[in-house]
Write a protein that binds this DNA or RNA. Structure first.
Lengths: 214, 214
DNA sequence: TGTACATCAGTGAACGCGCGTTCACTGATGTAC
DNA sequence: TGTACATCAGTGAACGCGCGTTCACTGATGTAC
């Protein structure tokens, strides 16, 4: 029978001089783990993160201005992957229409694999989003531009017929995929078919599904 | 110079005997006001609602099991309007395809008019949603069925070409509109055109926008 | 080689807050006899 | 007509919690002279 078991997590060893930024990385990694394990942004409290790192709460503020900055920094890390993932999926595919399909699917897969990150970045209250994350961070700048490029190439190749500038069509297509992702995240039980099947149907719908008979 | 100004809201007069349910209505109305005024679910604290009604916090629990039930009861009230709104918009329109368009637009308009309600009902964490609100409450049962009916009628009339059962096509269409709504709620600054214009583009996209050249 | 000093990476303790929820109680009103 | 009782619509006070954030401080390590 131990008198007073010490259940506190092990104290972290102090970074050597000049290596203070190590803590920043450890904070981000611990927060990422907490977010994935809990699937709930509210698990990301300053205190919980500090405890997971093995450090006291004030130490967080050495590296982040406030909680919100930290939360978004965690998500931004994952978000960097999506543009890369979309490009990887599309690269090597000669058919621009198929590239569009692959990009959309990569986005969907990323969202479903990181639902809480997606929720924070893309479904949050606008006021909660720090300015530098408010813009087209995800599937934004790079993602939408590449999509628009594929759109115009597909149109030139006669694979599709564009009614708007490529960029506008790219935004519309992205909104459609976003609808699927946010839907599956918020209401997973409404999933009547596997996501890839629904995605295919959605893609067909947009591409030729409900087209009027001639 | 008043000594000790009483800034508390006026006490509510007690309901007469047998009229205890009046308080329930007043709670829902006060919560609705708070939600609309703040545009933030977190403003809906039990204490804030009680104060707005002019009653003490424990009184809330006479009529609601917990905070979550109350919050969803508030949203469910607004949600009842959307099915009615969609039917009203569609009724009288002979063209089934146009009815589909009108239903979707009514849904969009409702979502944008009640963003915080929409967020709570349709964009929340699944676990936070009480069981009886988890299903197709919004644009669900009634809404999707009516949409599916219009789909098959439009197909019979030769206005569209269905690649799936009408119900599936209705769900896909609904997901597209949901994408627009949730997008505009979360990222209003990305709105590059008025919603009705984007909606029209989206509708055209689904209906005939990117259809391949024959 | 020794010593004063600056810097760095954190810590300890606390501030003040609002939150959901529970429990025993109150005081007015109706009802049975 | 009077009185005991039950019911109803709430209240008052508190429980216990975790939260973000701030402030003055510490102790080890490097650096200048």
């Amino acid at each position: 029978m131990r008198a007073c078991p010490d259940t506190r997590p092990p104290r972290r060893v102090r970074s050597p001089r000049g290596q203070g930024d190590r803590l920043r990385e450890e904070i981000l990694a611990a927060a990422e783990n907490l977010l994935v394990a809990s699937g709930d942004e509210s698990a990301l409290s300053v205190r919980a993160i500090a405890a997971a790192v093995g450090v006291t709460p004030p130490s967080i503020y050495i590296h982040f201005a406030d909680r919100n900055e930290l939360v978004f920094a965690v998500c931004a890390r994952q978000a960097e992957q999506v543009d890369r993932a979309m490009d990887e999926r599309a690269s090597g595919e000669p058919d621009p229409l198929e590239r569009i399909r692959l990009r959309g699917f990569a986005y969907l897969a990323w969202g479903l694999a990181n639902p809480e990150h997606y929720r924070i970045l893309m479904m949050g209250r606008p006021a909660a989003t720090p300015a530098r994350f408010a813009g087209h961070r995800v599937a934004g700048g790079g993602g939408l531009d590449a999509l628009a490029a594929d759109m115009s190439e597909a149109a030139e190749a006669g694979r599709i017929r564009l009614r708007h500038p490529p960029r506008v069509s790219a935004e519309l297509f992205w909104m459609v995929v976003h609808g699927m992702v946010s839907m599956l995240i918020a209401k997973p039980h409404l999933e009547s078919a596997p996501p890839q099947e629904t995605y295919q149907r959605m893609f067909d719908l947009v591409l030729l599904g409900l087209a009027p008979r001639d």
